[in-house]
Design a protein around this nucleic acid. Structure first.
Ligand code: NAD
Ligand code: NAD
Lengths: 220, 220
DNA sequence: ATGCCTTTGTGAACGCGTGCACAAAGATGG
DNA sequence: CCATCTTTGTGCACGCGTTCACAAAGGCAT
C-alpha cells in the first residue's frame, strides 16, 4: 500500500508539516501512526471534501481572446469541471464553434443556466459589461463567479466571487521588484501586507476608461 | 482641491476604514485631519510606492492560446507595463506578428532579457516546459515571474514567483458551492482555511499527465 | 509478547493582522 | 481668537492561523 508521510507532503508543498497534519485532521484524520497516509484514500477524501467527485457544469461568458483561450484549456475537464456552454453577445459569433462548442447568444443565457443546472459562471467580457452579465447570471441561479474583468462586482449575499486580475499580479511583482532595486530606505517599516489586498483603490469621483475597461489607478 | 476621506475609500473598497488609514500611514501619512486625503497626491504616493511611476518591460514566453490573449490584452500598458517581447519555442511562429509584435524564438531569450533590461517574465508554456523556461529566465536576469502553468516552480532565493492557477480558482468556488448545497454537516469544524492554500498536494510518487500538463490531483 | 522506532494528532504558546476607540490636529465659522 | 466639528493617526486588545512540542498509537523486528 503506497503511503506518504506528512513530512514528505509538507516538503513538496513548501509548508509546515504540523500545519498540514492539522489541516488533514479537519477532514477526519485517516493517517496511520508510524506509517503515514494511504495515498489513494487520502486523495479520495480530499477530492470529496473539495467537491471534486462530482463534476460541475460551468458557463463562460465573453468569448474573446481570453474566453476562447479558457474554452480551449484542457485543465478544466481534468479537474472535474465541464464547460456547459460558451456565451457571447456578438451576434456574428453565434453558432460559430470554439473549442468544439457552438457559441450561444446572450439571449439564451437564462435558459442555458437553468437547463444545465449551472451554478458556476466565468466572466471574460469587457469590464463595462461585467456587472450586467453578473446580475443576469445571479438572477438565473449562478451562485459562484470567477471574474476576469477588472471590476469589483457587487453581488447579493450567498454568492461567491473570485477575481483574477493579471494587472494586479504584475503590480505586486513590480512592487517587490522595486524593493530589491532600492535596497536603502523605501518606506522602512511597510509590512508589504498592503500588496496583498485585491481591492482596487479609486477616488470617489473616479471614472472608467474610454472603452469602459481597466479603471485607471493612475490619472494619466 | 478634491479630497477623499478614509471612510469613503473604505466603503468603496469594502474594507475597514481603520485598516485603510493604518495602511496609508506606512507610506508617510499625508492626510489632513478634518478633511481627508488629497486625491491627486495620494494617487501619486501610492503609485510611487507600488513602483508604477516607472514602466516595467516584461516578456511573455509561450505564445499559444493564453499567451496570445495576454499579448493582446491592453490592461498591461495602461498600468505601467510594456511588453518587450513575445517568445516561443515553435520555429513556425518565429517572426509571425502577434498583437503587433513579431514572435521571437527561444534561442534569443537571453539576449532579449539582457538588451531590454527585463526583470519580469510571464510563463504561459505547457507545464512540462515551465521549469526549464523559468531556469533560463532566471539565469538571464529575471527576478520576478508570473506563472500560468500548473506547476510549482523552484527558484533561487531572491526571485519572486506568483502563480495563477485557474483550476484552483474553480476548485475553491466548487468547494464553497458544495457547502451551500449540503447545509447539514459536511465536516463540521473545517475552517475553510485549507481552501486558500495555493500549494498543490501530490503524492511523492506522482507523475505528470500524458502531455506533461496539469498534474492530476485525482487518480482517474 | 515485548520493546523500539516512526509518525500521527493535538494542546498550548506565539505572532500577526484586524478592528476598536480615542486623543490630537486641523479646518471652519462666529 | 476661540469654540466646535470633522477626520486623521495610532495604542491597545482581540481573534485567528501557524508553529512547536510531545504524548499516544501503531508497525515491526526480535
Ligand atoms: N486577454 C487577456 O489576457 C486578459 C487579461 C486580463 C484580463 N482580461 C479581461 O478579460 C476580459 C476579456 O478580455 P479579452 O481580451 O478576451 O477581450 P475581447 O474584447 O477579446 O473579448 C470580449 C468578448 O466579450 C464579448 N461581450 C461583450 N459584451 C458582452 C456581454 N454583455 N455579454 C456577453 N459577451 C459580451 C465580446 O463580444 C467579445 O467577444 C476583459 O475585461 C479584460 O480586461 C483579459
Ligand atoms: N488556455 C488557458 O485558458 C489556460 C488556463 C490556465 C492555464 N493555462 C496554462 O497555460 C499554459 C499555456 O496554455 P495554452 O492554452 O496557451 O497552451 P498552448 O499549447 O496553446 O500554448 C503553449 C505555447 O507554448 C509554446 N512552448 C512550448 N514549449 C516551449 C518552450 N520550452 N519555450 C517557449 N515556448 C514554448 C508552444 O509552442 C505554444 O505556442 C499551459 O501550461 C496551460 O496549462 C492555460
Amino acid at each position: 500500500m503506497p503511503t506518504v508521510s506528512s513530512e514528505e507532503l509538507a516538503t513538496a508543498a513548501g509548508v509546515n508539516s504540523a500545519k498540514l497534519r492539522k489541516d488533514f485532521s479537519y477532514l477526519g484524520s485517516y493517517g496511520t501512526r508510524g506509517v503515514g497516509y494511504d495515498v489513494e484514500y487520502l486523495v479520495y477524501q480530499i477530492s470529496r471534501e473539495l467537491g471534486l467527485t462530482q463534476d460541475w457544469p460551468v458557463v463562460i461568458v465573453g468569448i474573446g481572446n481570453l474566453g476562447a483561450a479558457l474554452a480551449n484549456y484542457g485543465g478544466f475537464a481534468s479537474r472535474g469541471f465541464r464547460v456547459a456552454a460558451l456565451i457571447d453577445a456578438d451576434p456574428a459569433m453565434a453558432g460559430k464553434p470554439v473549442a468544439g462548442l457552438p457559441v450561444r447568444h446572450t439571449d439564451e443565457l437564462e435558459a442555458i443556466i437553468s437547463d444545465n443546472g449551472v451554478s458556476i459562471g466565468v466572466i471574460a467580457t469587457p469590464a463595462g459589461a461585467a456587472q450586467q452579465v453578473c446580475d443576469r447570471l445571479v438572477a438565473a441561479g449562478v451562485t459562484s463567479i470567477l471574474n476576469f474583468a477588472p471590476t469589483v462586482l457587487s453581488v447579493p449575499e450567498g454568492v461567491d466571487v473570485r477575481k483574477v486580475d493579471l494587472s494586479i499580479e504584475l503590480q505586486i511583482l513590480a512592487f517587490h521588484e522595486q524593493r530589491k532595486a532600492g535596497e536603502d530606505s523605501p518606506s522602512p517599516a511597510a509590512p508589504a501586507a498592503a500588496a496583498r489586498s485585491g481591492a482596487g483603490v479609486r477616488s470617489s469621483a473616479s471614472r472608467k476608461g474610454p472603452d469602459g475597461d481597466v479603471p485607471a489607478v493612475m490619472p494619466a
